[in-house]
Nucleic acid binder design. Structure first.
Lengths: 174, 174
DNA sequence: TTTTAATGTAATGGG
DNA sequence: CCCATTACATTAAT
């Protein structure tokens, strides 16, 4: 449940613990048995969000507040239709298949940074805990730590580099 | 001899047959004697290369052809200094002891992919042949096929997941 | 422009 | 060999 984009209904497959005996899954004969391919988790849930309702029947696009929007008619019934409004940028991300960029809040960053100072390699347990506390996907946490480690290494490299360079320069000036 | 990262001047240690009595190696007292453990093949040749000449005395960095380079001063005498030019990318990998990431060329990938389509599990003989033809280590080939098989498996899982989910969605909309 | 979230994949280590 | 992870090079969003 990352902020900035909704998850649609794609999460329903994973809520094994909460469905009743008369759940949709059981009616459709898709009961999870923790065997075979149904256990698989989609790698691209933000794409599923649009696929869940099929290809749009139609769409119109327009400008609003200086931004390009598109209204897609996902389903047309006699008395109603289901529409979805998406921004142009998001649409671009979609067909490129790229996850919309997550914008962490300041408070989320603060927590992540404080954990990072203690442990740059949190295990799955810590990541799940963080994910729950910060209301983020565990995947986002993992990626954040990866990028954070890369950043740390970059800064180490730069400072080390400058140190050597300064030594060299000092020697030259002696 | 993987393409994708230059060897700088560090390859000189391997050209034992071509150096004269007044080579840099002999001046520095680093003559190879081919005795004892030196005959063994290192598991990490990309680390040995830098350790052989000790830590650089100093280094300066600069840009050339859009790439970061570093010039390291290996030894400073009164009238001369011995320097070594290395690319920045290589420098990064050094201090961590990790093999520099191989960047396969498009044509190498094409060959590997075409072989993969026919046989995902090439034996040592095929791998050696590929290594020779593509000018790569046999190890790189082996790793490539391992990663390629993992990728194939992922895509299979993903498509199966989507198939099941689409069935699920179709049922809902009927 | 700079920073950094996201991606693809080469490399590593354990089983 | 597999599998899960990690590092790393790049791309692209902000």
């Amino acid at each position: 449940s990352s902020p900035g984009w909704d998850e649609g209904t794609s999460g329903s497959m994973e809520n094994k613990a909460t469905h009743s005996s008369f759940s949709i899954e059981s009616i459709l004969g898709l009961e999870q048995k923790d065997e075979g391919i149904l256990a698989a988790k989609s790698q691209r849930p933000w794409i599923d969000t649009c696929n869940n309702l099929g290809k749009p029947v139609a769409s119109i696009s327009y400008l609003q507040h200086g931004q390009m929007y598109e209204e897609r008619v996902l389903k047309c019934e006699k008395y109603f239709s289901i529409t979805e409004k998406v921004s142009y940028k998001r649409e671009l991300s979609w067909y490129r298949g790229r996850r919309p960029r997550t914008a962490f809040t300041r408070s989320q960053i603060e927590v992540l940074e404080s954990v990072f100072r203690v442990n740059s390699y949190p295990g799955i347990d810590v990541r799940e805990e963080l994910a729950h506390k910060l209301d983020l996907d565990e995947d986002r946490i993992q990626i954040w730590f990866q990028n954070r480690r890369a950043k740390l290494k970059r800064s180490h490299r730069e400072s080390q580099f400058l140190m050597v360079k300064n030594t060299f320069t000092s020697n030259l000036l002696e």
